[in-house]
Design a protein around this nucleic acid. Structure first.
Lengths: 154, 154
DNA sequence: GTACATGCAAACGGTTTGCATATCT
DNA sequence: AGATATGCAAACCGTTTGCATGTAC
């Protein structure tokens, strides 16, 4: 599992120091319970730790990514991260209209990836896989209200 | 089709000026016959038009994207573009090791997209869809030579 | 005590923009 | 002739880095 205890042990085992900043950032990701942008992590961190620097956030996230404690997720143009899911890896569907992201169960990609591997000898990395499109809510709204509904990317 | 003539007509119909720079950039994309990074387009353009500015390349590509003459492709971190494929849309598999990109026939994504739509009412945009992974050549090389083979992203 | 993490500020690199001039129609 | 595209240089913004100081171990 990805509870604090296990993560802390991982870090200690790798002689990676447990600083308040790192703990805070990991806790924010855990509580958020989804992928978050760097700016989002940063601003949340500042509410409890006003002097934290965004460089620290970047360094921490990159470090945690390297040791696979967090996973980088390709959402939008900027970096997003989430706590690495312990067992099966899920993927994301991002609405280009409202920006929300939805999780996609792993079976989908597994089957899909196997087929690709069979047909092209290409080994897809199922971790970094994001589908863009329009969520049901936005699709509905934009149908009804004839473009009075605003999209992020029109 | 996407031959010069048709594209030129599209531009004229939209009162978009046919400048040598724009023509050159479009021709480069057509000859290249795949997605290309901005820097790649720029350097190719300079061989026949040394004073062209990279800002012009960006402006042209963004303009052509807006009117759907070129399509932005999510490959790597930087922007990539290709001439919009007229009929069915294909997608890409990018090797995170050698950086090469391979085309994926549209049937794959169509079926996959339909299933997702059925199950989640999410309408995937099949145009912007890139699968990262390892190509057969790189997989083979990295097996054989035990990490003496260099990956872009190790 | 020592190696390493942090904050700060500055650099970096891809992309965009403001402006005067040149070009297309 | 008038609207708009270009080149040039500077701004922008997300991300990274160098360095002196502070901190976990």
């Amino acid at each position: 599992m990805n509870d604090r205890r296990t993560v802390f042990k991982t870090l200690r085992d790798l002689s990676i120091r447990l600083t308040p900043q790192r703990i805070l950032i990991l806790d924010i990701l855990r509580k958020g319970n989804t992928h978050m942008g760097v700016e989002e992590v940063y601003s949340k961190a500042r509410t409890t730790f006003p002097y934290i620097d965004i460089a620290t956030v970047y360094r921490t996230l990159n470090l945690m990514k390297k040791i696979d404690v967090v996973t980088e997720v390709a959402i939008g143009e900027r970096l997003h991260f989430e706590l690495t899911h312990p067992g099966r890896k899920h993927n994301h569907m991002v609405c280009t209209c409202c920006g929300k992201a939805f999780n996609l169960p792993p079976e989908y990609l597994e089957r899909f990836g196997e087929q690709i591997h069979r047909d092209f000898s290409f080994e897809p990395d199922v971790r970094n896989f994001t589908i863009k499109g329009k969520c049901s809510l936005c699709a509905e709204k934009s149908e009804k209200s004839d473009s009075t509904y605003e999209c992020l990317s029109p």
